[in-house]
């Protein structure tokens, strides 16, 4: 369903609130069909909020957005699809582990996608989020140093 909407009617995401409402309906569905997934998403959120300088918000295309100093480094959709921003080198090295995929839309970018399918995936998702956090923090700090 998610893939169908993203691939076939993805242009609708530009309608204000459409993607957020769609994500809320996925959340509604998951509440009844796979409630543990919402627990895992909450666990991810708690994990991220413990990292200094992070905030959690709503992603413009639906889901929960994780930011470092206001800069997004990951977001998770309510069907368990975790999109994470890494750099291309890091992405390549992690790809060899076979657990992550190209971002479901931006294949040639530093973004990757990882599906939370069971509780064991939570540990790896936190590991990926830590990597993305470190990467974004490093990048932000170097930008700050450059401006000084």
């Amino acid at each position: 369903m998610f893939s169908f909407v993203v691939n076939r009617v993805g242009f609708l995401k530009d309608i204000p609130l459409f993607a957020i409402i769609f994500d809320s309906l996925m959340r509604f569905w998951m509440f009844f069909t796979k409630p543990e997934l919402l627990d895992w998403i909450d666990d991810l959120e708690e994990n991220v909020t413990q990292m200094p300088g992070t905030t959690v918000g709503i992603h413009k295309y639906g889901g929960t957005e994780f930011n470092y100093m206001g800069k997004e480094f990951a977001h998770v959709h309510s069907n368990g699809l975790l999109d994470i921003l890494l750099n291309k080198e890091l992405k390549q090295s992690l790809m060899t582990e076979g657990k992550i995929k190209d971002h479901h839309l931006f294949k040639n970018s530093g973004w990757i996608s990882f599906y939370l399918q069971n509780k064991q995936d939570l540990g790896y998702a936190c590991y990926l989020l830590n990597k993305a956090y470190d990467h974004t923090k490093q990048k932000q700090n170097s930008i700050q140093l450059d401006t000084i």
Binding site: I20, I21, S24, L25, R27, F28, T55, V56, G57, I58
Partner: peptide, 20 residues
């Protein structure tokens, strides 16, 4: 009902982000 649930859930999460 899909409209009601979709917008109430969205409102709750938008509200949470706003009040944070």
């Amino acid at each position: 009902s899909p409209l009601i649930f979709g917008f109430i859930i969205s409102g709750a999460f938008i509200g949470r982000a706003m009040f944070k």
